[in-house]
Simulated assay, not measured.
Amino acid sequence: MGALLARARGGVVICDVGGLGPPGLRHVELLARLQLTARRAGGRIRLRDADPALYALLDLVGLRFEAEGEVEEREPALGVEEEVEPGDAAV
């Protein structure tokens, strides 16, 4: 199946799935089992270097995994929005 590297960081397990090759149901089963184990231990899984086809297959069976570096839904996006009125002095 290829090497599946994982490391825990703050309750998050990072799984490098870049070298798994074409995704199949065996990958879905493995990731589902890993996710279940992580959740039972109070953690979660993030995927690194996943093929878009793997995400499509996981979505098809109803599984959702975060990608490493993905902004979590509960975190506010960073950035500043500012309105400029005509006639405002440049700073």
Rank of each mutant, 00 (worst) to 15 (best):
M1A: 14
I14R: 10
V12G: 01
A53I: 00
L25T: 09
R33H: 09
G19R: 12
P23C: 06
E75K: 09
P52K: 08
R26F: 07
G87M: 03
E83T: 15
P22I: 08
P22K: 12
L4W: 06
C15A: 15
V61P: 07
Y55E: 13
I45S: 07
E29A: 13
L36H: 15
H27Y: 01
T37C: 09
G2D: 15
L57V: 04
L31Q: 01
E81K: 11
D88A: 14
M1P: 12
R7M: 11
A8E: 15
A6S: 14
G10N: 10
L54V: 01
L34I: 12
G19K: 10
I14M: 08
L58V: 06
G11A: 04
A6C: 10
E70D: 12
G69M: 02
P52S: 02
E85S: 14
A56M: 06
P52Y: 05
E29Y: 06
P22H: 09
D59I: 00
E68N: 02
G21D: 03
P76C: 05
P52W: 06
P22Y: 06
L4E: 13
L36N: 08
A32G: 03
E72I: 04
G2T: 15
T37A: 14
V17F: 04
A67L: 13
A38K: 02
P52V: 05
G19P: 01
L34K: 11
D49I: 00
L57M: 12
E72H: 12
I45D: 03
E73P: 03
E66P: 00
E68H: 07
E68A: 11
R44I: 01
R44C: 13
G19V: 09
A38E: 11
R39M: 10
D49G: 10
E29S: 10
L30F: 09
L20K: 06
A38R: 08
A89H: 10
L4H: 07
R39P: 01
A8P: 03
L47Q: 09
E82D: 09
R26E: 15
P23G: 07
R46E: 15
T37G: 10
L47W: 05
G42S: 04
L5N: 12
E75D: 14
L60P: 00
A3D: 15
D51H: 12
D16I: 01
V17T: 08
R26T: 15
V13F: 11
A67D: 11
A8M: 12
A8C: 11
V71S: 09
L63C: 02
A50D: 08
D16P: 01
D49E: 13
G18L: 06
R64E: 14
A53C: 05
E68D: 13
L58D: 02
F65L: 05
A90C: 05
R64T: 14
L54P: 00
A77T: 14
L58E: 00
L5P: 01
A67F: 01
G87W: 03
E66R: 06
A53Q: 14
G42P: 04
L57P: 00
L57Q: 03
V61Y: 05
G62I: 01
L47G: 05
E72T: 12
R48A: 15
R26V: 11
P76S: 05
L34E: 08
P86Y: 04
R48C: 07
E29V: 13
A53T: 09
L60M: 10
G21S: 05
A50V: 02
E73S: 13
G18S: 01
L63I: 03
G18Q: 08
A77D: 10
V17K: 03
